[in-house]
Lab assay of single mutants.
Amino acid sequence: MDSLVVLVLCLSCLLLLSLWRQSSGRGKLPPGPTPLPVIGNILQIGIKDISKSLTNLSKVYGPVFTLYFGLKPIVVLHGYEAVKEALIDLGEEFSGRGIFPLAERANRGFGIVFSNGKKWKEIRRFSLMTLRNFGMGKRSIEDRVQEEARCLVEELRKTKASPCDPTFILGCAPCNVICSIIFHKRFDYKDQQFLNLMEKLNENIKILSSPWIQICNNFSPIIDYFPGTHNKLLKNVAFMKSYILEKVKEHQESMDMNNPQDFIDCFLMKMEKEKHNQPSEFTIESLENTAVDLFGAGTETTSTTLRYALLLLLKHPEVTAKVQEEIERVIGRNRSPCMQDRSHMPYTDAVVHEVQRYIDLLPTSLPHAVTCDIKFRNYLIPKGTTILISLTSVLHDNKEFPNPEMFDPHHFLDEGGNFKKSKYFMPFSAGKRICVGEALAGMELFLFLTSILQNFNLKSLVDPKNLDTTPVVNGFASVPPFYQLCFIPV
């Protein structure tokens, strides 16, 4: 009986604490739906499609509103004006990374994606500088992407125009580009180590996009005490870190300090320079996690976009025909596509942009946080508050993009057929937390897609009208449904 009384008292205290925290903070924060004790607004949000729920709530509470995930307040920004004001106009104040408990377990605050403060700034600055020195957006990395595009075309030829699921092959190409940047090595598509790495990356994007992960991140005790797919994700990350550590040891034994070959060499050189400046942010643990982040951000996002792009091109054969006509006119058949071609191919450029806009790969991006107490639109948001960005509300804005739910390359073309930029184009987020590999991803999408369409016609196994382009999961990332196609050599 005594234990029951204690339990009831504990629960009562928890409920009172929950109510007090919510009521004391709500006077400062933007308005929002009334949260339930302990669980907050979790029942009012469709976990399978958070973005749709945010759109519905914005119609009631406006472009800036507050939700509670458990006891934790989260300020939501919906629509271009609110997102721009926060991420661009007040970029420094909104540059923090929001709480992501599962990532905390995986990387302990290291790396480039989930770190904060001085650690994040130094690692991000170093990573950007190193990638630029190796030619991100310049010639040397373009050579690597072109080489991988040629290998991709050869792998597709091996399908002999038979029906195939493109998931694996389209994942190999961007993964190999990242391998060449980090390890100075590309792998054969049949290499077992490479296959294991690909498998872990593919599993992780599916797990991260599941409703279960949303629950884990908002009720963090689940991570330590409950079984579930989150444990598989943590094991996959541990596998990748151990693999990278092996490569780091190989580099330490063979590195030429006067001739760095890749990202690992550059990081080890930085560690050597910083060894007298303790404590340094440049450690082996930081290198492991930064490399894992580059793999995660640079492989599955690009391969998922490529997979979605081919599905949309199957669905819209008239678009595919126009792209192939432009390829034939500008590039021809006797040389590989290059980035200089893009400025002469406005329709193809528009298609690449429209694919990214339409699929809305990361509907709410990753959570941000404010780095200080900030007054925002007459609300006071306390330091450390998590900020949720609705990228969907920007990419699918119906004023900027008429009929935003329709796939239409003319969203990025003017009346004369010239490519038209849009400030609403934010597939990689915006501001200080914009994806480090934005330029690389854009290069890969253009070169891989043009190389495929230069060499193959795409054949659907069903009537294009019957192809479903609805994402199968739409949590962290929008993942396309399973499909097969035939690559018919031109």
Rank of each mutant, 00 (worst) to 15 (best):
V5F: 15
L9I: 07
L11P: 01
S12F: 11
L14R: 02
L15T: 13
G25C: 15
P30I: 01
P33C: 00
P35G: 08
I39G: 04
I39N: 03
L43F: 13
Q44V: 11
I45R: 02
I47F: 14
D49S: 10
D49T: 05
K59G: 07
Y61I: 01
P63M: 04
P63D: 15
V64L: 05
F69E: 05
F69M: 14
I74R: 03
V76C: 11
K84D: 04
L90V: 10
R97M: 07
A103S: 12
R108A: 14
G111K: 06
V113S: 15
W120L: 03
I123C: 07
R124E: 05
F126G: 04
S127E: 05
M129I: 13
R132C: 04
N133R: 15
F134T: 15
F134A: 14
D143P: 05
V145W: 01
V145T: 02
E154R: 09
L156F: 09
R157T: 08
T159N: 05
C164R: 05
D165R: 00
D165I: 00
G171S: 13
G171T: 14
C172Y: 03
A173Q: 00
P174M: 11
C175L: 12
I178W: 03
C179L: 03
I181K: 00
K185W: 06
D191G: 02
Q193N: 12
L195E: 11
L197D: 01
K200Q: 05
N204T: 11
K206T: 13
I207S: 06
S220T: 09
P221A: 08
F226S: 07
T229Q: 14
M240R: 01
Y243F: 15
L245G: 15
N259P: 11
P260Y: 07
D262M: 01
E272R: 12
E274P: 04
E281N: 12
T283A: 05
E285A: 05
N289I: 10
L294T: 01
L294I: 14
L294N: 00
E300H: 12
S303L: 03
R307K: 11
R307I: 06
Y308I: 03
Y308C: 06
A309G: 09
A309T: 08
L312P: 00
P317Q: 08
T320L: 12
A321M: 13
K322R: 15
I327P: 00
R329H: 10
G332L: 03
R335V: 05
D341C: 03
S343H: 15
A350V: 00
V352A: 04
H353P: 00
V355K: 00
L361D: 08
L361G: 12
T364G: 08
L366R: 06
P367L: 05
V370Q: 04
D373L: 02
N378M: 03
G384S: 06
L388T: 03
I389E: 04
D397R: 03
E400S: 04
F401H: 04
M406V: 13
M406N: 14
F407T: 01
P409N: 00
H411L: 01
G417P: 04
P427A: 10
F428K: 04
K432M: 14
N457F: 07
V462D: 10
P464M: 06
D468S: 10
D468G: 06
A477V: 14
F482G: 09
Y483Q: 01
L485F: 01
L485M: 09
I488G: 02
